[in-house]
Design a binder for these strands. Structure first.
Lengths: 256, 256
DNA sequence: CCAAAAGTGTTCCAAGTACACCCATGA
DNA sequence: TCATGGGTGTACTTGGAACACTTTTGG
């Protein structure tokens, strides 16, 4: 039980082992989906603008019982972080639906939770629009604009993940992970608007994503609604793999 | 020793503790500095274009003795990751010189190093130009363009850190962490060129960073060299704190 | 024929790039 | 006065925002 670790060169003493036992590593995932919101009856007005939602479960036990937490749990010895994230998520949603999973930062404050130390590696997960996964009874989607009281530092994790998602919507094709396989520009516009938190112009969205070859028309059209209107062209994302589309926003290398 | 962990809800069994002992957490830091290169005597030609260099130490012990590794080491129970990074670095360089430290991704493959599992949290560190810190004998600066054989996955970490640095030079003021306190535009140009790996135009660099209020003229000028030339205006970075300067490269929110 | 929704064309503007030309200095 | 390096002026280009206008549908 004594000796120098061959890799790091640190000593494996009784004290180290004891202190080490008390440090565990957990994974936390902020899973987002753009979801049509249930009707708000404010004087009969029904809102159907979709909102960005995050998957949370309600703690039944102390500490912080009654508050809402991100899905996650302990990292096992034989799995890496993405595998662990997927495994933990499988307890809350159908992981088949997960179209994107990406590591965010690590929260390592020794005091971040009461009791023994827990280091948290956080992830951003995305689920596309039409999916309606089954949820356990303690689990629900919450609009990010109206978050409930949250456990520990989980609120910070959610904010962090939102910021990252918004940034990536601008310079990558990450929208594919939120949108249905095929969609109209106005559907896509409402998805981007929900995820970014501000109004996005459908005309410009079409042109920007088209010019970058991020979306491609399928050639088919969607039938108009009851009230008429021109039928909308259907699009799909050109790649279903994550891709950076606008690498050099500024200070690009010389042309030659 | 048995029971349910109050936070994560997982069981603390003998098996869990045993497997847990064998998992440790280390910090690895890729520290960069733009350094004037020692003279290359290729037929008498002396090159003095500075290059981006990374701080490495040579392993004296197996496994992989003789290969070069990033500074770092084990995370202690009472410190968070940035503190640990600074502490580990202090064994190799004067941490006072460190102007930027930022977390990159976690390497969590259970097999990433031989022997017991070691999870690595990686960091990007920056040291400004004029600094010439003392180094231990096993430690040296290596140009990123000519890296020696490196230990484990450390090469990947360095590449990752370079990519991140290059990206951030474009849309943040992170250059302050590589440049001297005061500098001429042509000095800054050579720093950016070295860090980005391609030729940067001094005229445009001045205009871009000036327009964004990233750099400010001090009002003073630097004396010209032996061969004459107009004296150069001195600049400094407006903020010495990390700041995002070009948040919305595309898909910016509406003006009103 | 009108309202509604989708798509196109046009103008404007911000921001970078490229490069010619002007300025200040030492020998 | 000239070579040298620094700074400015300007024309070009890219790409996104805004908005008017046209197209295609249902009632």
């Amino acid at each position: 039980m004594r000796g120098v670790h061959p890799i790091s060169g640190f000593r494996l003493t009784i004290e180290n082992v004891k202190s080490h036992i008390s440090t565990t590593h957990e994974v936390l995932v902020a899973v987002f989906q753009v979801r049509p919101q249930p009707i708000h009856r404010n004087g009969g007005a029904t809102s159907d603008t979709p909102e960005l939602c995050v998957l949370l479960w309600e703690r039944a036990l102390d500490p912080m019982s009654g508050t809402w937490a991100l899905p996650g749990g302990r990292l096992e010895p034989d799995e890496d972080l993405p595998d662990s994230a997927r495994r933990q998520l499988a307890q809350k949603v159908d992981v088949q639906e997960l179209t994107h999973l990406e590591q965010l930062s690590v929260f390592s404050d020794p005091q971040r939770v009461p009791g023994n130390r827990v280091i948290a590696s956080t992830f951003l997960g995305l689920i596309p629009c039409p999916a309606e996964p089954e949820l356990p009874t303690d689990t629900a989607w919450h609009p990010v604009a109206r978050l409930p009281e949250m456990a520990f530092d989980h609120r910070i994790v959610v904010d962090h993940a939102r910021t990252r998602l918004a940034a990536k919507l601008s310079y990558t094709n990450i929208g594919f992970a939120l949108a249905p396989h095929e969609f109209t520009v106005s559907t896509l516009k409402s998805i981007y608007s929900a995820a970014l938190g501000y109004h996005v112009d459908a005309t410009n969205l079409q042109r920007v994503l088209g010019r970058r070859r991020v979306i491609t028309p399928t050639g088919t059209t969607a039938p108009p609604g009851k009230t008429g209107g021109r039928p909308a062209a259907m699009y799909r994302f050109t790649d279903t793999r994550y891709r950076v589309t606008d690498e050099f926003a500024a200070l690009r290398p010389p042309a030659d």
